[in-house]
């Protein structure tokens, strides 16, 4: 296969075929994801700029230390690591759905899509719990009960950025779940079976992996550093 690419390499731009060797929809999905990466990047970088311009900042380990059902025990990073693993696992089940699609395996596609959808709902549930918990602690847009790490009073920048960025990401997860549900219904209704290929699952998969990819960076910027 590598040889094929080398042999054809010289003719990629000669016309008559896609120089990117993918169908139009998949290429456009990549470009959309690239622009979305810049949107998320702009959000996270503006957060970074504001944080770098502050003398002190709330310590994430003091803010995110709760776990459902664990009362007031101090468990830094525990809940967010659960959320991270849920998203990684749902990414893996999506890879398996895409692969089943390559093999034209309708049952496999719908089985793995269902698992991916369950993972998406689990993540959204976790996020809803975390937001509710923080809201009850007095945190919201424009309200920040958490002091800076050095003991001084903090600005609301921390909560504003946190709710805006995790909210924007959560919205992406939500739309990803909706797309996956549509894919599941289309699979069940033999739409792809009749078309003869499951390329649509691949595009939905790209979007879903991107959501996981963004979470990796949100996790880094808000919870780890």
């Amino acid at each position: 296969m590598a040889q094929t690419a080398v042999v054809q390499g010289k003719q990629w731009w000669a016309g008559g075929k896609s120089p990117f060797n993918v169908e139009y929809g998949k290429l456009m999905m990549w470009y959309f994801l690239m622009s979305d990466a810049f949107t998320f990047g702009a959000f996270l970088i503006s957060y970074g700029t504001v944080r770098f311009s502050a003398n002190s900042w709330p310590d994430p380990n003091h803010v995110f230390n709760a776990f459902p059902g664990a009362g007031h025990s101090n468990l830094p990073l525990a809940f967010v690591s659960l959320m991270t693993f849920i998203l990684i696992i749902s990414s893996v089940t999506m890879v398996l759905a895409v692969h089943a699609g390559h093999n034209g395996d309708k049952r496999g596609v719908s089985k793995w899509l269902i698992w991916t959808i369950i993972g998406g709902f689990a993540f959204l549930g976790c996020q809803a719990w975390e937001w509710t918990h923080l809201y009850h602690e007095g945190a919201w847009w424009g309200m920040n009960p958490f002091p800076n790490a050095n003991g001084t009073a903090s600005s609301t920048n921390f909560t504003n950025f946190f709710f805006t960025i995790t909210g924007f990401h959560g919205f992406h997860v939500f739309s990803g779940v909706v797309i996956n549900i549509i894919m599941l219904l289309m699979t069940r209704n033999n739409v792809f079976e009749k078309k003869g290929h499951y390329l649509m699952i691949e595009k939905a998969g790209l979007y879903w992996h991107f959501v996981d990819l963004v979470w990796v960076f949100v996790f880094l910027c808000f919870y780890l550093v």
Partner: peptide
């Protein structure tokens, strides 16, 4: 900016921003 120390047990829902932006 003279930074004010955070009050102890500060958990009321208020805007604690002393110097927003």
């Amino acid at each position: 900016v003279i930074e004010t120390p955070a009050r102890q047990g500060e958990h009321e829902k208020s805007d604690t921003a002393t110097h927003p932006l």
